[in-house]
């Protein structure tokens, strides 16, 4: 199953600005139950589509010699869900790029409605040959640039089961309102490794974020049963992927309460491999019933 999420490149000023789209299909692997109780794409996958769009631009600009990988993201704001049948418009503005790093902003919309925005994502640029076949990537870029706007006739789908790829295996410590520690084994057969990346499979940051958010939500629901189901992740801040996570690794995740005020709960999340911090971020959850994004 592919882990490439841009269906069409619509406009492109090389290394500066790129627009594209992604259709949320009923047979997507990465679906969840959205705020309107309809099947929706995992928000982190919308972010992945935006990141991949920016990557296409700078890969093209570097003549497919370099590719960006996940690094630091200052802020991601999740405004709404993208549901099955939605055509997501993706726009990425590249602030700067060179052979060392890319810095970009992105926004995803559906019919003009803002879904998700990324502020200042900074990703290291690494030699393309370590991760992908440059010729294949160049060919894919041409195909995406010449692609038709995607469309499928039958958008009917039932509510999805929670995506197994983002489920934690074991709860090590579970203290509602204090902290949760959980572990997850990353199997080599996970579907995303085929494309992420063919020559060097590593866990996509967006899959790790999805797992973190699902775990945090489950913990909040137990801690705050009266409002838990309406608490939704609104903003992710200071995200950083420090090391690649290879297949067959066990990730230990620690979630702690950082702050709580009004209708917002701020969590600190750290992912570790062998006691080494490989990823960290802050997440703000808010009550979807009392706040509009």
């Amino acid at each position: 199953m592919s882990y490439l999420f841009v269906d069409q490149i619509q406009e492109h000023t090389t290394g500066q600005r790129i627009c594209g789209c992604k259709l949320v299909r009923p047979d997507e692997l990465y679906l969840t139950i959205g705020r309107a109780n309809h099947p929706a794409l995992l928000p982190a996958v919308v972010g992945e589509a935006l990141g991949q769009l920016g990557a296409w631009s700078v890969m093209h600009a570097s003549q497919f010699q370099y590719r960006p990988v996940a690094g630091v993201v200052d802020q991601v704001t999740i405004y709404d869900d993208a549901y099955v049948g939605d055509l997501i418009t993706l726009t990425t503005e590249i602030v700067t790029w060179d052979e060392q790093a890319i810095d970009y902003h992105s926004v995803a919309t559906v019919d003009g409605r803002k879904i998700l925005a990324i502020d200042h994502a900074i990703g290291p640029m690494l030699p393309m040959t370590e991760f992908n076949d440059p010729q294949r990537m160049q060919q894919l870029f041409i195909e995406l640039s010449n692609a038709q706007t995607p469309w499928v006739e039958d958008m009917q789908t039932s509510l999805p089961s929670p995506c197994a790829l983002i489920r934690y295996d074991q709860m090590v410590d579970w203290q509602p309102g204090v902290q949760v520690i959980a572990t997850k084994y990353i199997p080599a057969k996970a579907a995303y490794f085929a494309e992420h990346f063919p020559r060097k499979p590593v866990l996509p940051l967006t899959m790790l974020l999805s797992a973190n958010l699902a775990l945090a939500q489950q913990w909040l629901m137990e801690w705050q049963p009266s409002i838990g189901s309406s608490l939704v992740p609104y903003q992710l801040r200071k995200i950083k992927m420090r090391n690649f996570i290879a297949p067959e690794t066990t990730v230990t995740t620690v979630i702690k309460l950082k702050a709580q005020h009004n209708d917002q709960i701020v969590l600190q999340i750290v992912n570790q491999v062998d006691t080494r911090t490989v990823c960290g971020l802050e997440v703000i959850f808010h009550d979807a019933n009392t706040q509009s994004a």
Partner: peptide, 11 residues
Amino acid sequence: AESIDFLDLVF
């Protein structure tokens, strides 16, 4: 510090 930390730190 890892190499990515320098990018983050400068930012």
